[in-house]
Computed example of a mutant assay.
Amino acid sequence: MTKKPKDSIVIMTELVLPNDTNTFGNLMGGRLMYWMDIAAALSAQKHCNAPVVTASVDNLSFVNPIKLGNVVHIEARVTRSFNTSMEVMLNVWGEDLVRKDRYKSNTAYYTFVALDADGKPTPVPAIEPETDEEKELYNGALRRRQLRLILSNKMKPGEATELRRLFEKG
Rank of each mutant, 00 (worst) to 15 (best):
Y34E: 12
T122R: 04
T21G: 03
R31W: 08
N91D: 13
K154L: 11
R164D: 14
K104R: 06
E14M: 11
R77Y: 15
I74Y: 10
Y34W: 13
E14F: 06
V57Q: 02
S43P: 01
L27R: 03
L90N: 05
E87I: 10
K120N: 10
E95H: 06
N22G: 08
L163W: 08
E159D: 13
Y138E: 03
G30W: 07
L97N: 15
I11T: 10
Y109P: 02
L149Q: 10
R77G: 15
A50H: 08
V124I: 03
V10E: 07
N83G: 12
W93V: 03
V16K: 01
V88C: 08
L137Y: 04
D20G: 06
G140P: 01
A117I: 12
R143A: 09
V92W: 09
D116G: 12
R145L: 15
L97D: 13
E136F: 05
P65W: 07
M36W: 10
R77K: 15
V113D: 08
G25A: 12
V53P: 00
P125C: 07
K46Y: 14
M89T: 14
E75Q: 15
I38L: 14
G170S: 11
T107D: 07
V98W: 01
G119Y: 12
E14C: 06
K104P: 06
K67T: 09
R145K: 15
K6V: 13
V52I: 07
G140I: 02
T111W: 09
S43K: 00
F24N: 15
V124M: 03
I11F: 13
F167Q: 13
A117C: 09
V53T: 07
K156W: 07
G29I: 07
N70E: 14
T131H: 05
N106K: 02
E168Q: 15
T79E: 04
N64S: 14
L90C: 08
R143N: 12
L149S: 03
S85G: 04
H47T: 04
S85A: 05
K67V: 05
N19W: 05
L166M: 15
R77I: 06
D20P: 03
L147N: 06
G29E: 02
V57T: 07
A114C: 10
M86T: 11
S8R: 00
G30Q: 02
A126V: 04
L149D: 08
N91K: 12
T84A: 12
A108I: 00
M12Q: 06
D58C: 06
G94A: 08
S43A: 11
A160Y: 05
